[in-house]
Design a protein around this nucleic acid. Sequence first.
DNA 1: TAAGCTATTGGACTAAAGTACAGTTTTTCG
DNA 2: CGAAAAACTGTACTTTAGTCCAATAGCTTA
Lengths: 204, 204
Amino acid sequence: MEYEIVDTEHAFLPNWRAAMPAARVVLRTAAQNGAGGDVSIRWCRLRAGESIAVVLPALLARKGKTVILADEPGDALILEALSAGAAGCCNTHAAPEVLQQVATVVGNGGLWVGQNLLQQLIGRTARILTNRNPASVIDVLPGTLSEREMQVAKLVAGGASNKEIANQLSIAERTVKAHLTAIFDKTGTRDRLQLSLKINGLKL
Amino acid sequence: MEYEIVDTEHAFLPNWRAAMPAARVVLRTAAQNGAGGDVSIRWCRLRAGESIAVVLPALLARKGKTVILADEPGDALILEALSAGAAGCCNTHAAPEVLQQVATVVGNGGLWVGQNLLQQLIGRTARILTNRNPASVIDVLPGTLSEREMQVAKLVAGGASNKEIANQLSIAERTVKAHLTAIFDKTGTRDRLQLSLKINGLKL
DNA sequence: TAAGCTATTGGACTAAAGTACAGTTTTTCG
DNA sequence: CGAAAAACTGTACTTTAGTCCAATAGCTTA
């Protein structure tokens, strides 16, 4: 397996050298224009203040996997990198053993992403994908809403107007409003939009 | 590295044997009660109609990573498995080379999840987690909104009233309304709630 | 330079949402 | 059985949202 490191200057950090001594450093501007080789993994260093959206696309268009190296990457950056198509994101100064693990995983078709982060993300997405299930409303608003209130809340969370809800539940629009007033009180929200965000897990 | 395969019967499929000849098969009920060994990876076969929530917890509580083997696992199943804490999910009948790759990746701390699926999931979650980031609105509504419209849309998606938006952007409430009218037209939504759902990925 | 687009705002509405009083009926539970 | 809770609805608002006309100013581009 061949690697190359893409950076804004020709520095070869000691941990990189220890992990992959045969790798070479390629200037980023050159790499973005096709320089360097056809490698298995292209490690791209992202420096403070730099944007993935600016740096990564040209590299992702090339053959080989791309791994982002960043100083203490936060969740948002990891997310963005993976979303953009990178195969992983790890610390610029990670120990050689870790870099080797990343290389092994990525080189074998896996993705390098923190287990906790992925589970959080998947958990959250699963919740959102299944928000049409009444149970999810129960989860968010445990025990405080009556059955009817939950029905109304769910329909609001899905975007329905009072009139639509009234038609759907065969009640007066006036009743919908009454339920909503109660729901806002119980959930600590002020309007349907805030309620929707809360139910859909987008706001506390 | 040591593996064991957890199944409801003592079958040792040929692809499993080719990929990891030294592995043994352990009955699932026994494995859920502590039988088998302390292995690096525990492969758990999930049969049709079986539920991860029933099968997996006892195995996940044990030392070692767990990979789910299922017949042509769909996205929902993979999601559920990863969300529950499995390190991967792949086809029961996958080629030995694939199984070996899975083993390498998982054995080295990676996760085995389809790249396309992960990016979809991350993309969706990233949008939601970063819905305060203008770039995410661009992703959802490519090219159709002006910069100002995007700012307004984003604030609406976060639950703000017209008045709040006007204050935040130092413009008249009247202007907020004008922008919103344009935004609804461009996005094919009828009101702020629908817009919010669309931006947050909860509606098409 | 003219046209097109964006940002801003006004006037004047209509429509929908949300609130505060009130009441009746039905259901549940001690 | 009686009290409380839930479901339903009315009256009468106020507030917010959204629409349809219009206009001006600034910027960009063919």
